[in-house]
Computed example of a mutant assay.
Amino acid sequence: MRSPLLALALAALPAAPASGASLLDYVGQCVPFARAASGIAIYGDAWTWWEQAAGRYRRGSTPRVGAVIVFERSAQLRLGHVAVVSRVVEARTVMLTHANWSRQNGARGHAEQDVTLHDVSPGNDWSRVRVWYRDTGGLGGTVYPVAGFIYGDAAPAAELTGAAPDDVGALIDAYVTAR
């Protein structure tokens, strides 16, 4: 069982996990996790990151490893969501590492490494996406609006991607089970 103090220490970190602590042991909100995993020092609700990044960080619509994707506020995500790109699989499919998305052991907040994110925007511009969801074992049915990607200057956390991410599984999730 994880110490509540470790969780608090990870949440308070501006850009990196505590020495010896695994980023993937994190349990909490997406914002402190994304900050620690990417090195992008933005605070506040996830949906505010896009505007806060203006003039401080480069922004765009192309996924890159270590970039933070900013999900806009919506009925399903009233505070938005932020996640870090851990791997680019192909032009419309990437993998994310993030926290507080799927339930694990009956609770939200846990970190998840290398989960599929698929661009379903009509213009192929990453403005609308579907995300892998543990409870369904595939891409969820909800399409989420996205503001874009924020590109940091620091190297992302070493644990951002696993040793053997499942690119083929990500493509199967994205295209074979596409709705």
Rank of each mutant, 00 (worst) to 15 (best):
W126S: 10
Q76P: 00
I40W: 04
A163K: 09
V94L: 10
I150D: 04
A170F: 01
I172H: 12
G106N: 08
G44R: 05
P14Y: 04
R59Q: 15
G44W: 07
D153L: 11
D167G: 05
W50M: 06
H118D: 04
L23I: 06
G137E: 06
W49D: 03
P63A: 08
V68R: 00
A83Q: 02
W50A: 09
V31W: 01
W101V: 03
R130E: 10
A111F: 03
P165M: 02
Y43K: 11
T48K: 11
W47R: 11
G28S: 11
V168K: 05
G137S: 09
P17W: 01
E159I: 04
R59Y: 08
A147F: 02
T142M: 02
F33A: 07
E51T: 13
A18D: 03
R87G: 00
V65L: 03
L5H: 12
L171Y: 00
R179T: 13
T177L: 14
G66I: 02
V27P: 02
L8W: 10
G44L: 06
A174C: 07
S61R: 14
A107T: 10
H110A: 15
D45S: 12
F33G: 09
P156K: 03
V84S: 05
A21Y: 10
Q113H: 01
F71L: 12
E51D: 15
W126N: 07
W50G: 08
D173G: 00
V89I: 13
C30I: 05
Q52A: 15
G140H: 08
G162S: 15
S3V: 04
I40Q: 02
Y57I: 08
P32N: 05
R2V: 12
I42K: 04
V68G: 00
D173A: 10
Q29N: 14
V85I: 15
A83I: 04
A54K: 14
V70E: 02
G106F: 06
G80C: 07
R130S: 10
